[in-house]
Design a protein around this nucleic acid. Structure first.
Lengths: 116, 116
DNA sequence: CACACAGATTGACATTCATCGATATACGGT
DNA sequence: ACCGTATATCGATGAATGTCAATCTGTGTG
């Protein structure tokens, strides 16, 4: 099975071409756009910011719902999008779900811009 | 008047705080999300790629319409979004409009990720 | 001036998206 | 086994978005 996240697959194809010389293919563009789409919502940027700022490196949904002033289902929805994009990691321990930054994901995303 | 583009204003507030310690404010998040929203469409990524790949550093709309297989109004619309986001620069010479990358815009956008 | 052409703007339409309330699932404690 | 809590999923709804066809605005040329 292919379990690579968008950030990784997007960079996969990016690291091989000298510098996007032959123009970004429609397929590559679609994949890279998915990552940026995950970042294109204010609430999701704040979620990333909170998780990043947490000293323990991880936050549970209950800690994220209040500061954003959003309903719990909405926060869960945003978190899923960030996980699907390969930016956040989800680990369930007991009743709680802990979210943490995927190591290097931000850096890889930044590289996506340079490899356009 | 305040004529700063999103990439610049977004970085403006980012460069002063140590590292987004006090969580990204709703306002900062909104501004930064605007930049990523501009990057969240495959057609716009391809537009940036084409402009970047052009040896002369600039492209006119007529050169951008065909490779994307999109109508001219649609391309104009996407270009406007990229200009508004502060990523592209527009210069009209005679009948033609030439678009070029705003110097450093990509780098500043990449920095946005690090300063979340 | 009139015509042709490049590009921007407008209006319409279908799709996607953010959000919420209600419900489902899964786990811990009694 | 029952109940409460934490989180995910579902269905609906209003707003935003990508695209196109038609039109408008300039600019150069006969």
């Amino acid at each position: 099975m292919n379990s690579l996240q968008p950030v990784e697959t997007a960079l996969d194809t990016a690291c091989c071409a000298p510098s996007g010389q032959p123009v970004l293919s429609a397929e590559d563009a679609r994949r890279k756009a998915l990552v940026f789409k995950a970042l294109s919502d204010p609430s999701r940027l704040r979620l990333l910011s909170i998780v990043k700022g947490e000293a323990s490196g991880e936050s549970c949904v209950c800690d994220l719902t209040e500061p954003l002033d959003l309903g719990q289902p909405t926060v869960s929805h945003h978190l899923k999008i960030l996980v699907d994009a390969g930016l956040l990691h989800r680990e369930k321990r007991g009743t709680w779900a802990y979210y943490s930054l995927v190591p290097g994901a931000m850096e890889r995303t930044a590289d996506l811009l340079a490899s356009l």
